[in-house]
């Protein structure tokens, strides 16, 4: 098991946001975390990487409980995180953005070099010295993923990678995620676009009002249109 989350509860100030979240990600798996805006997807990710201070529960990554570690230590351990809204460093060039993400080689995870990443995202290779602020939204999204891969993670949390992108770019994103999977990276994707999620995921969880209310394979989800439509507002 790559990642095991159990009894995860999170709070913002007095507000209880996540209730007893439990989820599992197997070696090399792509898992979708589906839910509406505000259901708790981003908070789940932020809690796993330690960006939410007030949280309790067990987060076991590669057999080690990381729930008390600070963010940078969790990430250095090989758990990569790509936040929503891209958040690249617009003042830095593409190569400098990648430099920020660079971490040492890891035994149990694929090793990424600039050249390998530019094969995965050819657009980026053509603009190595361009500043992030002068890239389109699609290129920025590619760069955030590439930047996280520079840390040689064995698991990546991808928060809403398709949001605000044109259909064509979303299709490129599908290819990139499948290529990452092929390299051996385990992936959790949070999504609202079920079409997109279906193209990449092995399994899915549905989160609603801070609680996990479904977990199963994509086929099992399709067999339950009642659950799907009720919780995803399709």
């Amino acid at each position: 098991m790559k990642l095991q989350v159990a009894d995860l509860n999170s709070f913002y100030g007095p507000a209880h946001i996540l209730f007893d979240i439990a989820l599992e990600v197997g070696e090399g798996e792509v898992v979708a975390l589906l839910g509406r805006n505000g259901a708790g997807k981003s908070t789940t990710f932020r809690s796993i990487v330690g960006l939410v201070e007030n949280r309790s529960g067990r987060i076991v990554f590669e057999g080690k409980d990381v729930s008390r570690e600070p963010t940078h230590a969790i990430v250095r351990g090989g758990l990569g995180y790509v936040p929503e809204e891209r958040r690249i460093f617009t003042d830095l060039t593409v190569e400098e953005n990648l430099e920020v993400g660079r971490q040492p080689k890891r035994r149990n995870a694929p090793h990424w070099t600039h050249e390998k990443l530019f094969t995965l995202f050819p657009n980026l290779g053509e603009m190595r010295n361009r500043s992030g602020g002068r890239m389109s939204g699609g290129e920025q999204q590619m760069l955030t993923i590439a930047r996280t891969l520079m840390g040689n993670p064995s698991l990546v949390l991808l928060d809403e990678p398709s949001e605000g992108l044109s259909p064509k770019i979303v299709e490129q994103m599908v290819d990139a995620i499948l290529a990452m999977k092929k390299e051996g990276v385990s992936i959790v994707v949070s999504e609202q676009n079920l079409h997109f999620a279906r193209l990449i995921s092995d399994r899915a969880y549905i989160i609603e009002r801070g609680k996990i209310c479904f977990g199963g394979t994509m086929a099992e989800l399709d067999a339950r249109p009642d659950i799907r439509d009720a919780h995803l507002s399709l």
Binding site: S162, S166, P167, K168, V170, E171, V174, H195
Partner: peptide, 11 residues
Amino acid sequence: AIYLGEGLVYD
């Protein structure tokens, strides 16, 4: 070709 793609990601 430049925008809609194969139409895999919408209804």
